[in-house]
Every structure is written in C-alpha cells, then in structure tokens.
C-alpha cells in the first residue's frame, strides 16, 4: 500500500513538470498497455462517430494547418507539434481538452488507446 502511494506521488510530481509531445505518447501507451497505431489514429481523428462533429471538424484533417471552431468560427492554431511548439507541453491542458473534445465528438471520454493512436498520428505529421 505504502509503495503504491509513493509511486502515485512520483507520477503526480512527474506530471506537474513541463512535458514534451513524446512524453504523452509514452504515457498513453503505458496506460493502454499496447503500442499506438498512427493509421488507426488518422481514421479516428477524421471520421464522425455518431455525433455531429469529428476531431477534424475543428482541427481539419491536416493538423499541421490552422483550423476553425465548427460553431463559433474562431481560428484555432495547428494541433500538430511540428508546426506549433506550444502543443502538448502541459498535462493539465492536454487532459482538459481531451476530456471536453471527446465528450463533444463521442459523448464519452476517449480511451487511453484512442489517445495514444491520435498522438502517434499527430507526431507523424510534418
């Protein structure tokens, strides 16, 4: 029990530090217990799954480019780390937007595997 607490504390401390996009891929793969697939990530990102929107509705299917909010029209800077160095550097921000955007597109939160796949695909965009 004590050891689990210590590990949890360590993980927490680690997540409070600035992170790199690769760290998120590692974290989601570990949580999923399986390797990511960029190909699956691409399909997930660009197709609607019951809801009104897909991820691409706001982020476009070329996430190296800027997108637009599907409802408000406000410009959104690119999601791919290759063209936007601010992306995937803050765990609280990443978790918050995965929670919100998955809810909006799927009506549920995303699984660790889905997040890992999306990360792998975004990292492959150059």
């Amino acid at each position: 029990m004590r050891r689990t607490l210590a590990i949890a504390a360590l993980l927490f401390a680690a997540s409070a530090q600035a992170e790199t996009p690769r760290d998120f891929l590692t974290r989601f793969e570990k949580e999923a217990g399986a390797a990511a697939s960029a190909e699956r990530g691409a399909r997930f990102f660009t197709s609607k799954q019951g809801g009104e929107w897909s991820c691409a509705s706001c982020h476009t299917d070329k996430p190296t480019q800027a997108g637009r909010h599907a409802k408000t029209d406000k410009p959104i800077t690119p999601l791919a780390p290759a063209t936007n160095a601010e992306r995937f550097t803050d765990a609280a921000k990443v978790d918050k937007w995965f929670r919100r955007n998955c809810n909006d597109t799927l009506n549920r939160i995303c699984s660790a595997q889905e997040k890992a796949d999306v990360m792998a695909w975004l990292l492959a965009q150059k």
């Binding site: 409802k71 918050k96 929670r99 919100r100 955007n101 809810n103 909006d104």
Partner: peptide, 11 residues
C-alpha cells in the same frame, strides 16, 4: 459549463 451551448466547457 459541461453543457455550454452544445459544447463541454467544464473546468
């Protein structure tokens, strides 16, 4: 905020 005009804006 979790149902903010059709989007999840929860904090």
């Amino acid at each position: 905020l979790s149902k903010h005009f059709g989007t999840d804006a929860s904090l």
